[in-house]
């Protein structure tokens, strides 16, 4: 039986009124210093009223609030694995490197992952791959072998990153919801584009590029890899013939401009869910909108903390969902 999200969507509709708009983000960016920006956020209901949190604690508490709320309205955590599973792969990279180099992974793990990072680290340390969840079992063994045999951390990373992209693509294919499908496709396609651009700039071989890229529906990974092995302009020429032609200008500017394009493109896709009263789409849209909001606030607070001018931050700010 298909899950009914009516209750969750009704609660989300009200919470959407509390999301920060483009105007809110602009006034936050215009705040004279970090303290003023924090005060503005507290006025908007951010943070915990009882404690005086610093910027990182404030952002962590907002993320916790988001996932507590989502857990309350939709207790089935596996419904969101397409959002959380990349954290598992990040933690695997950290754990493999820490185990091989015999260092403690303090402060390096992401704790929003489906698999407990400490248990993951212990399993790798004991070479007990059977204790790992199925999607990390073989991969953990392979990544450890690659790092032991080659001492090439980058090679180890691309093995894990590719597995992550393939996992996300699989989740997208299995998903019934169109927004989840589009999110997963954009995740893989944007990762392929980043790999292509970075590989072209650093002169990587076609074998390396092919090993790093994952297949997706909106891009021909073989053609993109071929273009990346030739030159940067070949990538641009190929992308101009795809549905990512509107991203070419951003890619030509910088990787961070392309990341902003990806986020804005995603936000534009999500907007269709703003008035959708049923289904999983509005839930996903709210989570991604909130994550996008937290990302924007992190950028502003960090810029205020480091004295970066407002104009530079403005160029990097994402469009908001509301």
């Amino acid at each position: 039986m298909q899950q009914d999200y009516t209750y969750a969507v009704a609660r989300i509709r009200f919470r959407e009124t509390k999301l920060l708009s483009d105007a809110d983000i602009a006034s936050l960016n215009a705040a004279p210093d970090e303290g003023a920006a924090m005060r503005l956020l507290r006025d908007k209901g951010w943070g915990d009223n009882t404690a005086d949190l610093d910027a990182e604690e404030l952002l962590a508490s907002e993320r916790e609030k988001l996932w507590d709320f989502i857990g309350e309205v939709i207790p089935e955590k596996e419904a969101f694995s397409f959002l959380n599973v990349p954290s598992d792969y990040h933690n695997l990279k950290v754990a493999v490197k820490c185990v091989i180099r015999d260092i403690k992974p303090e402060g390096l793990f992401l704790y929003n992952a489906p698999t407990d990072p400490d248990a993951l680290y212990e399993a790798l340390k004991m070479r007990d791959y059977e204790a790992l969840p199925e999607h990390l079992r073989e991969l953990g063994k392979d990544a450890t072998s690659v790092l032991l045999q080659t001492s090439d951390g980058q090679l180890c990373d691309i093995v894990i990153d590719k597995a992550c992209m393939e996992h996300i693509r699989r989740l997208g294919k299995e998903a019934e919801n169109e927004i989840v499908q589009k999110y997963c496709e954009l995740f893989v396609a944007s990762a392929d584009i980043k790999i292509a651009v970075r590989s072209a700039k650093t002169g990587k071989s076609i074998d390396f590029i092919r090993r790093a890229m994952a297949e997706c529906d909106t891009l021909d990974a073989q053609k993109l890899a071929q273009a990346a092995s030739l030159s940067y302009s070949d990538i641009i020429a190929y992308l101009s013939t795809t549905e990512y032609s509107s991203a070419v200008e951003a890619i030509s500017t910088s990787m961070s401009a392309f990341e902003k394009w990806c986020d804005d493109h995603l936000t534009a896709l999500l907007r269709s869910q703003k008035w959708e009263p049923f289904g999983f789409g509005p839930v996903v849209a709210y989570i991604l909108a909130r994550e996008n909001e937290i990302k924007a606030v992190r950028l502003i607070l960090s810029a205020k903390h480091n004295g970066i001018p407002e104009e530079i931050v403005k160029e990097r700010l994402r469009k908001m969902y509301v």
Partner: peptide, 10 residues
Amino acid sequence: VAAAGVLAEE
């Protein structure tokens, strides 16, 4: 169900 969702918030 939808009404209960809104009431939980407001």
